[in-house]
């Protein structure tokens, strides 16, 4: 037996049969995949230059002001072609001497979930599939066990229900955020004003941050977000509520596009009971400081040492 068969006469035929056989295997595999991916991919009307530009776009913190401006213009062109409306992408910077904090009065919260609606109207989340930053848990009175909570109480139900209280949960903007530690590419970080933000153009979609979060605050775009034109909020911020794309993580940003301009987050404005108190923790005269100094407050899962800047209290 010879080691090579180079000297065999019918090599050409054998080779041909081999190639046909392997080709058939590949073809059958393609059929078995049931994939229609050979159809032309939907690139929208984004120019090649913009596609290349956004592919090679650097991390937010490493871009010069001019590069950020270019990135913003690319995004605005893309949104224009995608949603047929002018979307304004701002880039508000953190204000000096500001550290944002939130407090929520659970004796006032009635479970209306107006905060959820206010949030999704402001922040350009995918609608159907719904992506929501705030989850309101319907809890049994007499305990604090999250596992017996019902987050899916129907919106047709009259609230508050007897024997229940309500616990809204969103990103707690931890001073010691485990998500920031877990991200392998530094696509998420804590800003000087305490807001934990994401660079949606740098996120690789590995979901390490979502696994690290004890408050289940992070939501992933499992497919292209479905944002109907009439639900687009055209006033957006680069690190907050600009429309996202598939395959990236997102979450509450304390409405950085509003709060950094001196306005209240959308959930605070939407709340009809006045249960939500938002403000600057560094300002001794702020309402949030009054709450922290005069009410009995608590935070969720304090044993994990994440130092949330989101407090709960009751009257």
């Amino acid at each position: 037996m010879k080691f090579t068969n180079n000297n065999l006469p019918d090599l050409g035929r054998r080779k041909a049969i081999r190639l046909v056989g392997m080709g058939a295997a590949v073809g059958m595999g393609a059929l078995a995949s049931g994939s229609s991916s050979l159809a032309t991919p939907n690139m929208g009307n984004v120019s090649l230059a913009d596609q290349v530009g956004s592919f090679f776009q650097d991390h937010y913190k490493r871009m010069s002001p001019e590069e950020i401006q270019e990135a913003i213009e690319r995004l605005e062109r893309k949104y224009k072609s995608k949603y047929q409306v002018e979307v304004k992408v701002g880039d508000p910077k953190p204000l000096p001497d500001v550290l944002f904090g939130y407090a929520l009065n659970i004796s006032k919260c009635q479970g209306y979930r107006e905060c959820v609606k206010g949030c999704t109207a402001e922040n350009n989340q995918s609608k159907d599939p719904n992506l929501e930053y705030i989850r309101v848990l319907e809890m049994d009175r007499g305990q604090m066990n999250l596992e017996t909570a019902d987050p899916y109480y129907p919106s047709t139900e009259e609230v508050p229900k007897p024997g229940k209280f309500y616990l809204p949960i969103q990103c707690h903007h931890c001073e010691n955020p485990p998500c920031v530690k877990a991200c392998p590419v530094k696509a998420t970080w804590k800003e000087p004003d305490g807001i934990v933000v994401i660079d949606y153009n740098w996120c690789i979609g590995c979901r390490m941050c979502a696994n690290a979060c004890p408050y289940w605050a992070r939501k992933f775009n499992w497919t292209e977000p479905n944002l109907p034109v009439d639900t687009v909020n055209t006033q957006t911020g680069y690190l907050s509520n600009r429309p996202r794309e598939k395959g990236v993580m997102e979450k509450c940003t304390f409405c950085a596009q509003r709060s950094r301009e001196g306005r209240m987050p959308a959930c605070q404005e939407a709340c009809p009971t006045g249960a939500r108190v938002f403000g600057n923790l560094l300002d001794p005269d702020s309402e949030i400081r009054y709450v922290l100094e005069n009410k009995n407050v608590f935070r969720l899962k304090e044993e994990l040492n994440t130092e949330p800047k989101f407090w709960y209290y009751s009257d």
Partner: peptide, 15 residues
């Protein structure tokens, strides 16, 4: 090939 084409579909539609 089966895995590769399915993966192309995943890239197109998402996870």
């Amino acid at each position: 090939s089966m895995g590769g084409f399915t993966y192309l579909e995943q890239m197109r539609v998402g996870l």
